[in-house]
Amino acid sequence: MAKKITYTEKKDTRSGFGAGLHELGKKNTNVVALCADLTGSLKMDAFQKEFPERFFQVGIAEANMIGIAAGMTIGGKIPFTGTFANFSTGRVYDQIRQSVAYSEKNVKICASHAGLTLGEDGATHQILEDIGLMKMLPGMCVINPCDYNQTKAATLAIAEYKGPVYLRFGRPAVPNFTDANQTFEIGKAVLLQEGTDVSIFATGHLVWKAVEALELLAQQGISAELINIHTIKPLDEEAILKSVAKTKCVVSAEEHQMHGGLGDSIAQLLSRNNPAPQEFVAVDDSFGESGTPDELMKKYKLEKEDIVAAVQKVLKRKGI
């Protein structure tokens, strides 16, 4: 019987970023932070307060923020930019492409309020395409941690990594269940539960949904393996292939469009190496809308029940 995964409190992943950034401010004097009028939302206040000379308020001008960040790397600074995921990616795609990715600048693009769980603000702000946009850029590292502790650890880790990074996190309080003292290894998947019937690969907020699904699956006698893919690029190909070699079928789960997300990356990897039936828990070619995070996750089929249904479907395809 697998050990039950539990949590003691709910916390927002953006606060994990804020805590990590604050700690980095103390540890590394080359770390600078830039924000486009969303300091409170990104939880960058503590850094701003303690290191005002290294905090740059750029106003509502994201393109300029990305360019300034690229320029600040010249001279050895490690800039962390902060705004919503929508304004961190789609709005500034060309600036990131030319001035950051193609120019190979050591900029950390930190993006909050990603996905549907932004909630009531609606589809204008609920970007579900950002992982796809960013993973397509050559040399861009794409990270989507699952809870407060992991987001904090990831924030610390990316300062040590040389090169452009997209760090994606969210707005709502979610179960904080990973180790507070974890070492975050970029590109290294985390095995949460071993199983033999199906491999579930989840990222971001969907990792906890998958943890909840494990219990329902166990009740049905299904042995599911759950792996947290916090780094979408570079993808931990070895861990994925190893798991699928055993289970022979896959469910991917993410708070993102089906097109261009984690599931796509996994399907491509498998088709090149070891094709297997795969079901996708993701948004199916649709914009979001206003509503509470819980209502939206239910309506757009990103709940634990949707993961269970996807597992049942893929097991049928596998022929069990």
Binding site: V32, G67, I68, G71, M72, I74, G76, Q95, Q98, S99
Partner: peptide, 27 residues
């Protein structure tokens, strides 16, 4: 060459960033 350019309008932001970096470095 210290930055890619071609898609227009980006170089002033980059130059400002480099100038801010110089200030932080007392350069």
């Amino acid at each position: 060459v210290r930055i890619a350019s071609g898609s227009l309008g980006q170089g002033m932001s980059v130059a400002i960033g480099a100038a801010l970096s110089k200030k932080l470095n007392n350069d």
